[in-house]
Amino acid sequence: MNFFGPYTPLILLIFVASMLIQASLTRTYRTWGQIRNARNLTGAQVARLMLDENGLTHVPVQMVPGQLSDHYDPVRKTVNLSESNFDVPSVSAMAVAAHEVGHAIQDKVRMPALVLRGQMAVPLSLGMNLAPFLLMIGVLTQLSGLLWLGAILFGAALLFHLVTLPVEFDASRRALAYLNTRGLSGSSEGQNGARSVLTAAALTYVAGFAMALAQFLNVLSIARSSDD
């Protein structure tokens, strides 16, 4: 029994692909981050406008440090935009801000997938911190029980990534629909730019799911071999 299951090469391949996808996202984000949007609105202004028009006037828009650190906090009910998006009137800032407000709207309507993801986040975070140690100890001691427990935790992580996909895709759909309907994207160039930014971001979640799937299959294979 060893740490390397039959899916290890696939994991390495997906890891390389993930790095390429992340590089593509960074390149796309920077490209459209240098182009002003049609209405010359900052990310914060776009977020505020979209929130207010969807009955979320109580949700504040805040600036947080970092790049691509944008997120919606369902606990504090805040839309948080990175420094590079908060007060910049670019196509990238517009797209990212609208996407995060999309999550706020999901929270308002209690989208089942978003609620489930929120319920899974904390316990799963704790479990995934333990999973690698369980796998390592299980292999070293040849205790199949630990390996199967690790496999269950990796399976839970896979479920989390699976639930995340519709949440992120729906937020981007809401964002693009709003920007186009309100004319904030402007010309076809602006529309294509917003779509490119959100598509590149979505691919990172697809890569995350693929990695979680490969890791789960690998650990499952190691656990099964321990019973032979």
Rank of each mutant, 00 (worst) to 15 (best):
P112V: 07
R39D: 06
V163S: 07
V206G: 08
V91F: 10
L130C: 05
N180S: 13
V64Q: 04
V101I: 08
R224K: 14
G66K: 08
P132Q: 06
L162D: 13
L51W: 09
A47W: 04
Y72D: 02
L140Y: 08
N129I: 15
V219Q: 07
R76V: 01
M136V: 15
R76S: 05
R76C: 05
L140D: 01
T28I: 12
V139P: 01
L140C: 04
S69Y: 01
S144Y: 10
A95T: 06
L158T: 12
A200G: 06
A121R: 15
R182Q: 11
Y178W: 14
V163I: 12
L116T: 11
N180G: 05
I14H: 02
P89E: 00
A175C: 02
V64I: 04
G155S: 09
P60L: 09
E168Q: 08
E189K: 10
Q215T: 09
P132S: 11
D170G: 12
L158P: 02
V79D: 02
S82G: 11
A47L: 07
L114C: 10
V79H: 03
L49E: 03
H71F: 10
L13M: 11
M111A: 14
G193F: 07
L68G: 05
L130E: 09
L135Q: 12
G186F: 04
T26N: 12
A93K: 00
G208S: 12
I152A: 14
I35L: 14
L158V: 03
G190R: 07
A177N: 14
M136R: 15
L176Y: 02
L10P: 00
V91Y: 05
V167E: 00
R110T: 09
L10E: 10
D87S: 13
I14N: 05
L134R: 09
Q142D: 13
H58N: 13
R182E: 11
M211D: 03
L153Q: 02
R117F: 00
Q119V: 13
P123K: 09
Y205Q: 01
N218S: 07
I222D: 08
A194K: 06
L124S: 04
N80G: 03
A175K: 04
T164Q: 02
G183A: 03
V61D: 00
Y205W: 01
N37A: 02
L203I: 14
M211T: 13
A171W: 00
A200Y: 04
V109I: 11
S187N: 01
Y178L: 06
A175V: 03
R36T: 12
N85D: 12
G186H: 00
N218A: 09
V101T: 11
D227R: 15
Y7W: 10
I137M: 13
E83P: 08
L124Q: 07
Q62S: 14
N80S: 05
P132R: 10
S82I: 00
S90M: 11
P74R: 06
N85M: 06
A202H: 02
S144R: 11
P9Y: 10
T164N: 05
L203H: 08
F160D: 02
M19P: 08
P74M: 03
T26G: 12
P74S: 00
D73Q: 03
V96M: 06
P74F: 01
T42P: 00
V122A: 11
P123Y: 10
W32G: 01
T57A: 14
P112I: 07
A47S: 08
G145I: 07
T26Q: 15
Q142R: 15
A202M: 08
